[in-house]
Design a protein around this nucleic acid. Structure first.
Lengths: 347, 347
DNA sequence: CTATCTAGGTACAACGATGTACCACGCACA
DNA sequence: TGTGCGTGGTACATCGTTGTACCTAGATAG
């Protein structure tokens, strides 16, 4: 349990100044090859590692970024966090996770609070803040916004093709002959019309219209929380009301999995009686019974892009380039819940 | 985008020395009430926040801990991370997540590498390191070990009642009249006999023995990876070999969910034909079809305890107390897969 | 009236790294 | 032989805090 070696210890051992050691650490060319080799060897022998607090203090950079998401218990966010951590690790960054728990105050705190004081940047995925809170994004540090709740803000923004991928999802159902397509998880009246829910609903309506099918409000179940319970409840409510349907488009996979459960309980066969498609492509859908057809919104690409944009902002000198918006590519992953089997499902 | 205020700015505005401001920040009593109030007001007005790098450099503490787990894509670890982040937040700590991806080198790196240089402590849940790597735990910084792969190490250790809770799981199956109980996810021959898998198998065997039922090796499926695929494959293999069974004890929930899927595919009714119990109590099991009976190993308690122990170690002065081991309490959560309904399932 | 104490401060060093400025040396060249 | 320049370094200030030591004015005690 001896004391931790500092750059001074290395310098003393090597008989050079601390600055020379620092130059070695930072690949500064002003060091002769033999001096460099000797110092590297000593660093290794002594087990020296630079103190990141000191480095952070001096350089103003901590090599850490924060990721603020509602909760890791939501699979989508756990998987997003996984992707972000990997993407960050490849760039030498570590990730602090901040859970906002769907709490507006915590989201505001994540933006304005301590976080940005000790990380180099923030990836922020709001669940409560909406379009009218756009000004809160004008923070002191670099922020990249994720998701669909706020558009046109002052920060870079990585989002997905909510509307067109939803349209494609519905087209997928139409292509297998379904016409009475229930929509579950649709936005409630009060919601922003640029929310994920609204955009996805617009895609749904567009696909129906393009196919010449009149939309039926009774098929649209509007509910707030995108959880499994909601998905199950939506199916039960449709059946209780005697609404006929031969397919379900759930606005996320968790809803879809809840729907699968309720459909199964009701003795309906999937996809024979009801086909189901979800949205997000979470791992769980690969192994549900039946496996879940879904929209892959490009989570990997979202994570990579978001970290890239953030890194650019962190490195940015004086002249700020304008805010950018990137939409990840999407695809439909066809599985059993719409009658497909053994889709090649490598990640 | 003006420059970030420092303690000097606050001091200047208040007409006091920086130390006085520092004293206010640290609740040092040597400040008069009116001076304190004035400084607090100015801190608020200027939007001053202490620079954590500087504080970390000076105090040697960063108020951050690391959590090293295999992957957030495994639900158990995502939920554990959620609990740890909450527990840490309550104690004013932030959590950096390190994914080791089941990679031995990354696990070693997490222990010996940079992490412990810039966090105050590490919660470490190994998936590759085993009993013979116990010496690697003797790191420079505070570490709390999670899980069952290593015992008797130099660090505090939070674990679960693997063996007795498994025994209870099997007793649960026995209590509903099952006697041909398949065990899936059992350890392979080469494994440590203190791994989770081995301990849980021991519980299984003990319960059978206590009930006077001879164990049958053919009912024990030994497989390495605890994934859904493995669970499904185990069921298929049992059926292919014509082994009769009326219950399944899966050594984790993910295996159990895979098993549910394969049982469903095979047209077997759950729990009528086969009852299933898992282990971990992940969220997903509440909403599977049927919902999954499982062992709750006390994840919340594990997270709270682990953070508590770590905090104690971080605060510890010279005299180190000996390593402690804490086992969390467990319970059986009975759900549909063993014939129970609507268990009270609040978290 | 002087000595002592306490509350409420102040000044300065230190934490461990990096940036700036500068220096010594050897070599090439006019 | 003096000048210029590149190479490989050094010394010192600095980042924003907190700890240590010290100071001062007023109250209190003798």
């Amino acid at each position: 349990m001896s004391t931790v070696p500092t750059i001074h210890d290395v310098a003393r051992a090597a008989g050079v100044s601390i600055k020379t050691v620092s130059n070695v650490l930072n690949d500064n060319p002003k060091v002769g090859p033999d001096t460099r080799a000797r110092i590297l060897r000593l660093i290794d022998e002594l087990g020296y590692r630079p103190n990141l607090s000191a480095r952070g203090l001096r350089s103003g950079k901590t090599s850490m970024i924060a990721l603020a998401v509602p909760s890791l218990r939501e699979n989508y966010f756990a998987e997003l966090a996984d992707s972000v951590i990997r993407a960050a690790a490849r760039r030498g960054l570590r990730v602090v996770i901040e859970q906002t728990n769907g709490d507006r105050e915590l989201e505001i705190e994540a933006l304005s609070g301590g976080q940005l004081r000790f990380v180099d940047g923030l990836l922020f995925s709001p669940a409560q803040l909406g379009q009218k809170d756009v000004d809160l994004l004008a923070t002191r540090g670099p922020v990249v916004l994720l998701g669909e709740r706020i558009f046109g803000g002052p920060t870079d923004h990585v989002t997905m093709h909510n509307s067109s991928s939803s349209c494609a999802a519905v087209e997928h159902l139409l292509s297998i002959g379904r016409t009475r397509i229930a929509l579950i998880g649709a936005p409630v009246e009060t919601e922003d019309n640029a929310s994920s829910a609204s955009l996805r609903e617009q895609g749904y309506l567009r696909a129906l219209e393009a196919a010449g099918i009149a939309s039926d409000d009774r098929l649209i179940v509007r509910e707030g929380h995108w959880g499994r319970e909601t998905g199950a409840a939506a199916i039960r409510s449709l059946r209780r009301d005697g609404i006929e349907f031969d397919a379900v488009f759930a606005l996320n996979d968790t809803l879809a999995l809840g729907a699968l459960r309720a459909l199964g309980e009701a003795g309906l066969r999937i996809p024979d009686d009801v086909a189901v498609i979800g949205f997000d492509n979470i791992d769980e859908g690969r192994f549900s019974l039946p496996s879940l057809t879904t929209v892959d919104p490009g989570r990997l690409e979202i994570a990579e892009t978001a970290v890239d944009l953030l890194v650019e902002r962190i490195q940015e000198k004086g002249d700020r380039m304008p805010a950018r918006t990137v939409k990840a590519g999407f695809s439909i992953v066809a599985r059993e819940s719409t009658g497909f089997h053994n889709a090649d499902d490598s990640d």
